[in-house]
């Protein structure tokens, strides 16, 4: 028949293979964004800006990563999705440990948080000043990923706050507090 464009073959919609790039591009981009936002603004304002950057990315990744997934159910299921598939896609591994107090607080532990890998922890026995400086630096790098996690969760219907604690780098905990 003339005039009708050929139809796609029935079945799954063809998806192009995911585009790849070198990880170092993302690392340097994140490092630069930390520097950039802290250079022009006070600490809290810079933190808020970085969190906002992450939040938008989290919303967009929630759309992308849940596109082909069966419907996620309750809060726990959504958080488990974040700990497994989402963390894997974003940080190349799953969360190592998930704890909850069953009253709206979830603690995610990642023993080798990828986005802190480039920061070297202070040598054991360093003076408290050094340790604190290293901790502050790590915290500045964590606003963006916290924003991503919070953005994704909120976009999936779990309204919450996310706070990171770089206890012993590169190990890091993320505390999710569900807002009632």
């Amino acid at each position: 028949m003339a005039g009708i464009p050929p139809a796609p073959s029935p079945g799954v919609v063809a998806k192009k293979p995911a585009r790849r790039c070198a990880e170092v591009c993302l690392e340097l981009l994140c490092a630069e964004s930390v520097r950039l936002f802290h250079a022009k603004q006070s600490g809290p304002a810079a933190a808020a800006a970085l969190e906002a950057v992450g939040y938008r990315v989290g919303q967009q990744l929630a759309e992308r990563y849940t596109r082909d997934k069966p419907r996620l159910g309750d809060t726990l299921e959504i958080i488990k999705f974040v700990c497994k598939d989402f963390w894997q896609a974003l940080f190349k591994k799953q969360v190592d440990n998930l704890k909850t107090n069953h009253r709206g607080v979830y603690v995610l532990q990642d023993n080798g948080f990828r986005w802190l890998q480039r920061l070297s922890p202070p040598a054991p026995g360093s003076d408290p000043g050094r340790e604190e400086a290293a901790r502050q630096l790590a915290l500045s790098y964590l606003h963006l990923p916290c924003g991503i996690v919070r953005g994704a969760l909120c976009h999936l219907g779990v309204i919450c706050t996310v706070e990171a604690d770089p206890k012993q780098m590169p190990s890091c905990t993320f505390t999710i507090r569900i807002m009632a």
Binding site: M1, I4, P5, P6, A7, P8, S9, P10
Partner: peptide, 16 residues
């Protein structure tokens, strides 16, 4: 929409 407006599209198969 234009792809799926073809005759027979409602039946799952497609005809050109």
């Amino acid at each position: 929409v234009s792809i799926y407006r073809g005759a027979g599209a409602s039946q799952g198969g497609f005809m050109t």
